[in-house]
Simulated assay, not measured.
Amino acid sequence: MLFVFDLDGTICFKGEPISERILNALANLTKQGHEVIFASARPIRDMLPVIHKDFHHYKMIGGNGSLIYKEGKIVHSKSFISQDLNKIVDLIKEFDGTYLIDGEWNYAYTGPDDHPILRNVDAGKLAQLVNLNELTSIVKILILTSNNFEQLFEKLSDMELFINRHSNENVLDISPKGIHKWSALEALGVKRGSYIAFGNDSNDITMFQNALHTVMIGHHEELSHFAKESIDIKGNFEEEIISKLEMLSDYYTLVK
């Protein structure tokens, strides 16, 4: 069975790397013959520091589906077309926005020096902070501040883009047209109804909609409509996640 995991708020928490206990549970999945894929809003550059190097050969989906990473390299990326990008940049200027804009590896940043998002940006010092015009391929845009988020969101929503409003941060997370976690899984050859998904936020909805089984970590109102099970973020919740992985692993080993 294929297991697909979001990272932040699902198997790693508060910007910290995946715990050793959960890593051991993921390793046990592969020992039992299952496959693990990581699928995150983070670009690959920011996924690697929270995933132990022993797991860096696993397949990874980054940038909400705009990047696919296999065996140590980016093998697929989907960037904004110039027409959409120019319009987004014009709207950012119109609404006095600040941003984190990602290329395949490097990034441009104009947000506040104390913005919480900076905790997760290039923690491994793998990339370079550059000017926006130096990014040749732009795969993801986070709008961090604006003088009117609601109007900006409305105008962006008129475009054919994939936009997430993350529940834990007041940011707009924008991906190119047709790009989301399920589109990346399809690009990897994954079939509908052939995998188990773990997630926690609205950017996991497409992944949940097409899964065989789904487990929501914490509570997100929109995502909850597509979750078969949920685990509350309270008490020793990591142990509950590990127990759920063991149960699902055993079950889907038996029904192969």
Rank of each mutant, 00 (worst) to 15 (best):
H34S: 10
H76L: 13
H115F: 13
E94A: 12
H52I: 03
L29R: 14
D114S: 12
L48C: 02
I92G: 12
N28K: 15
H56Q: 04
S77L: 09
I22G: 06
N86I: 01
L29W: 11
H76N: 13
A27W: 14
W105P: 00
W105I: 08
H52E: 10
E20S: 15
N86R: 04
I51K: 10
P49I: 00
I22Q: 07
H56A: 02
E20N: 12
D54V: 00
L26C: 07
E104C: 13
I22T: 10
S66N: 08
P116I: 11
N86Q: 12
E104S: 11
E94K: 15
Y58F: 11
D84R: 04
Y107K: 05
G97I: 00
N120A: 09
I37M: 01
D113H: 09
E20V: 14
I44A: 10
G72N: 04
L48G: 02
K31I: 10
P49C: 01
N106E: 12
S40V: 04
K87Y: 13
D90N: 08
N86W: 00
N86D: 14
R21Q: 11
D114A: 04
V36M: 11
K73T: 07
I37V: 14
I61G: 15
S40G: 03
E94F: 01
K53Q: 15
R42K: 12
L118F: 06
I88T: 03
V75I: 15
Y107I: 06
H76Q: 12
N24K: 15
K70D: 15
N24V: 02
G97C: 14
Y107H: 07
I74K: 11
G33K: 07
K78A: 08
K93G: 06
F80R: 09
D114V: 00
E71L: 08
G33Q: 06
Q32I: 00
Y58E: 01
W105D: 12
V36G: 07
Y69N: 03
L100F: 14
H115T: 01
A41N: 09
D84P: 00
S19R: 06
F55I: 00
R45G: 05
L29C: 10
E94S: 11
H52G: 03
